[in-house]
Amino acid sequence: MDVVILLAVLHFLPTLIALVRGHHNGFAIFLTNLLLGWTVIGWLIALIWSCTAVERRIRA
């Protein structure tokens, strides 16, 4: 059971990184991770995307 939880956390690591960093494309990263994360390339794309610069929104 612990292995399943560990694998799920590792699978959704890009999503967790995006959420912790407050990434402005967090939902899109989640969808990419969910739909393409089972492929190595899709997972790497989501991981790199989640580590890119976070866009700061200026409040008017």
Rank of each mutant, 00 (worst) to 15 (best):
M1E: 10
D2F: 15
D2N: 15
V3Y: 14
V3N: 12
V3L: 15
V4W: 06
V4R: 04
I5F: 12
I5W: 13
L6Y: 12
L6A: 15
L6H: 08
L6K: 12
L7F: 07
L7G: 00
L7C: 08
L7E: 11
A8R: 08
A8T: 15
V9H: 00
V9P: 00
V9Q: 02
V9I: 13
V9K: 03
L10Y: 03
L10K: 04
H11Y: 10
H11G: 10
F12H: 06
F12T: 02
L13V: 14
L13W: 10
L13P: 10
L13D: 02
P14G: 06
P14W: 03
P14T: 02
P14M: 05
T15K: 00
T15E: 01
I17T: 07
I17P: 02
L19A: 14
R21A: 11
R21Q: 14
R21L: 13
R21Y: 09
G22I: 11
H23G: 13
H23A: 14
H24N: 11
H24K: 06
H24I: 09
N25D: 14
G26K: 07
F27V: 10
F27L: 15
A28F: 13
A28K: 10
A28Y: 10
I29M: 05
I29Q: 04
F30Y: 11
F30C: 04
F30N: 03
F30S: 03
F30T: 02
L31D: 06
L31A: 12
L31R: 05
L31N: 07
T32M: 13
N33Q: 14
L34P: 02
L36E: 01
G37P: 06
W38C: 04
V40C: 04
G42E: 07
G42A: 12
G42L: 11
W43H: 08
W43S: 03
L44N: 02
I45A: 09
I45N: 05
I45E: 00
I45K: 06
I45R: 08
A46N: 06
A46W: 04
I48N: 03
W49L: 10
W49E: 04
S50E: 08
S50T: 04
C51G: 09
C51M: 13
T52R: 10
T52P: 00
A53H: 06
A53S: 10
A53V: 08
V54F: 00
E55R: 07
R57N: 00
I58R: 14
R59I: 13
R59F: 06
